[in-house]
Design a protein around this nucleic acid. Structure first.
Length: 414
RNA sequence: CGGGGCGUAGCGCAGCCUGGUAGCGUACUUGCAUGGGGCGCAAGAGGUCGUCGGUUCAAAUCCGGCCGUCCCGACCA
């Protein structure tokens, strides 16, 4: 991609209504724009990152054999009456009335829809266990949306649902999902902890939350310094300095941003909604269910909270909008620089890399500042100086380290 | 919903107290100049001052209602 053909919508100044760093940087980098409180549009640069996160989530889910589907965002009230949540779920549920005066809601979650769907599709124990998931826009009419896409009303979520003949089977899938979440957040390059958690409105019995560790996190968690043990302070009876309940290490506190949660729902929805399948003996059994969510848009913000400096965002390689930026110096005067820059651009692109060539007729300072703000992990500076020596500069966004690399070997380096 | 801010050009702000018909920086357009860190010079374009009403000869400015938005608290991926 060339910057002159892209919507590089960067701001030099920080918008006044953004409080936390990820929100400020997402606005300044031109990733998102607000449409209403807690409702955001994603610009091309932001969407690239969102899609990369989405694809990693998708790949890891697919790897477990989970099947991708897409359910409606708008859901009829009847389903929610069946589960009892039409009354229980407060004003956070955005209710809608159509032209026939029928009641609907914009889905904040999909237990009802998936259960209604599967009670028609699944008849036999032979079809279980099965896990289905979708990546879709949700709406929760938060009392107080804040911090940009960190706590928005409209957001992109991956929600998965599993169905089982037995609790043991549910436990098995739960553990697979738990591991899958660890894989996902590791691939995203995040520092995170899985913590024991309360079950909330979704109901059920057993749950873990996945928290990205960051100062601005809204939750406080206690974690062991010698094992994976962690717990949300909200429900913990222990405190910092206590020995870890698993006998390994001492507890410390940290702030966390909840980006995912895994639940064992049991038969709460399947039972309420009359969902049964036949077992080996022809006897009707109410399936056990699990549900597993990841806040995809929130994860993007959480990543920035953990990866930024005074110049801007520092994307982990796996989800950077572009892999490398080419910054030509004085390209609009120097034919040599122009040729070298375009040659590199075409080579690297052909190599399958996402390359951003800054072909604007701008001062270098402007180009450097923008490439650093939007957080491209690697920068290649092409200038007369280097070309005289047959090299280009290869700069790391995170460390700032510069290497001079021969023009011929740069594509091998990347 | 309770408490506290703020709404003036895309973004950041001044002007409001003490009414007289809107300004600065940046971004944008054009030209010149420059070319290794948001450089400089010149000329431009861009605003029903959130909205409705009131007071007044006259309202961005004073008074009232409403709306929007941000922050702190109670809910959630």
């Amino acid at each position: 991609m060339q910057t002159t053909k892209y919507l590089l919508a960067t701001y030099k100044e920080t918008p006044a209504d953004a409080e936390i760093i990820s929100h400020q940087l997402m606005l300044r980098a031109g990733m998102i724009r607000k449409n209403a409180a807690g409702i955001y549009a994603w610009l091309p640069l932001g969407l690239r990152v969102l899609k990369k996160v989405e694809n990693i989530v998708r790949e890891e889910l697919n790897r477990t054999g989970a099947l991708e589907i897409l359910m409606p965002a708008i859901q009829p009230s009847e389903l929610w009456q069946e589960s009892g949540r039409w009354e229980q779920y407060g004003p956070e549920l955005l209710r809608i009335i159509d032209r026939h005066k029928n009641e609907f809601c914009f889905g904040p979650t999909h237990e009802e829809v998936i259960t209604a769907l599967m009670r028609n599709e699944l008849q036999s124990y032979k079809q279980l266990p099965i896990t289905l998931y979708q990546i879709q826009t949700k709406f929760r009419d938060e009392i107080r949306p804040r911090f940009g896409v960190m706590r928005s009303r409209e957001f992109l979520m991956k929600d998965a649902y599993s169905f089982h003949m037995t609790k043991a089977s549910l436990q098995e899938t739960y553990e697979i999902m738990y591991k899958t979440y660890q894989n996902i957040f590791s691939r995203l390059g995040l520092k995170f902890r899985a913590v024991e958690a309360p079950t909330g409105t979704i109901g059920g019995s057993f749950s873990h939350e996945f928290h990205v560790l960051a100062e601005s996190g809204e939750d406080e968690i206690l974690y062991s310094d010698a094992s994976d043990y962690a717990v949300n302070v909200e429900i913990a009876t222990a405190k910092a300095g206590d020995p870890s309940p698993d006998g390994k290490g001492t507890l410390h506190t940290a702030r966390g941003i909840e980006v995912g949660q895994v639940f064992q729902l049991g038969d709460k929805y399947s039972k309420a909604m009359g969902f049964t399948v036949l077992d080996e003996n022809g006897k009707a059994v109410v399936p056990q269910m699990g549900c597993y969510g990841i806040g995809v848009s929130r994860t993007v913000a959480a990543t920035i909270e953990q990866n930024h400096d005074a110049k801007g965002i520092i994307w982990p390689k796996a989800i950077a909008p572009f892999d490398v930026a080419i910054v030509p110096i004085n390209m609009h005067k120097s034919e040599r620089v122009r040729e070298a820059a375009y040659k590199l651009y075409h080579e690297l692109t052909a190599q399958g890399l996402d390359v951003l060539l800054d072909d604007r007729n701008e001062r270098v300072g402007v180009m450097f500042a923008d490439m650093e703000l939007i957080g491209i992990p690697k920068q290649i500076v092409v200038g007369e100086r280097g070309l005289d020596a047959g090299t280009v500069e290869y700069k790391d966004r995170k460390t700032g380290a510069v290497e001079h690399i021969g023009l011929d070997s740069i594509s091998l380096t990347l």
